[in-house]
Design a binder for these strands. Structure first.
Lengths: 131, 131
DNA sequence: CTTGACTCCGTACCAAGGTACGGGGTTTAG
DNA sequence: CTAAACCCCGTACCTTGGTACGGAGTCAAG
């Protein structure tokens, strides 16, 4: 069952205008239309929108999201190209994970200090991402 | 040895105007000045700028960065308040880590598929963050 | 067969996060 | 002592990622 743009937007929790904007940006493929010109979306598009929103939350720009979404092994993209981009992104992600883990551990120290009413250094979390 | 705004900016790899902007936003404390009114920065400020840039890269807004930087156990903030904010941030970070791990694993599958010249599903990474 | 909710499209506007400009004073190397 | 390189400040401008507006067509319920 196909979705109208309004139904899609509600179910993906984004604005209708955002859907149109993503289409213009090339993040969403142009969907088929009804005779009257209304967009008809496959329900999979909900997941695509969730992915975009989540990736943004993880610090990727829309250009990067586009790059991630276009990564696949298919005729039309050289394997080398896919490998290169995917590996680069993987390293970037590794670094994000490492830094988030450090921040998390700082926050845990802070929570612990709080529980025992110990005072901590001037700005404990700052050291998390140092160097 | 104190740094001028230009030296600080160069060493933290940001624009001079960005430093002034962060000061206006309250992300950097107002530094002491020379007799002529020139800002004099403690070298620690470099780390603070690195932290800000990195946290942005991890998907935090400047408002969130400000919140993170102000987290500490000291007289002036109630322990309960610090605990609450720190815990909330920790959960948020956990979720980010989880999703990044999924994306990473998708990318690894993709790289492996590429190596063996197998074709993968239409958009393999999309499934990474699915529900 | 009309009224309200939806959709179309183009264009204008908005918020966040900077970045540039420009007229002035300062510092420092030659 | 002067030219290059900094710094001051206020204000204007820019990019990214949306959001809103508004006139026109569509569709479903009553």
């Amino acid at each position: 069952m196909a979705l109208s743009i309004g139904q899609l937007a509600r179910r993906a929790d984004v604005n209708v205008e955002t859907v149109r904007y993503y289409e213009r940006r090339g993040l969403l493929p142009e969907p088929p239309r009804t005779a009257a010109g209304y967009r008809q979306y496959d329900p999979d598009t909900i997941a695509r929108l969730h992915f975009i929103k989540r990736a943004q939350d993880l610090g990727f720009t829309l250009n990067e999201v586009e790059e991630l979404l276009s990564l696949r092994v298919d005729p039309g993209t050289s394997c080398e190209e896919v490998r290169t981009t995917a590996s680069r992104k993987r390293r970037e992600i590794d670094r994000k994970i490492r830094d988030l883990r450090r921040m998390k551990s700082s926050l845990e120290d802070l929570i612990a200090a709080c529980d025992t009413r110990r005072s901590t250094s001037a700005c404990p979390i700052l050291e998390a991402l140092d160097t």
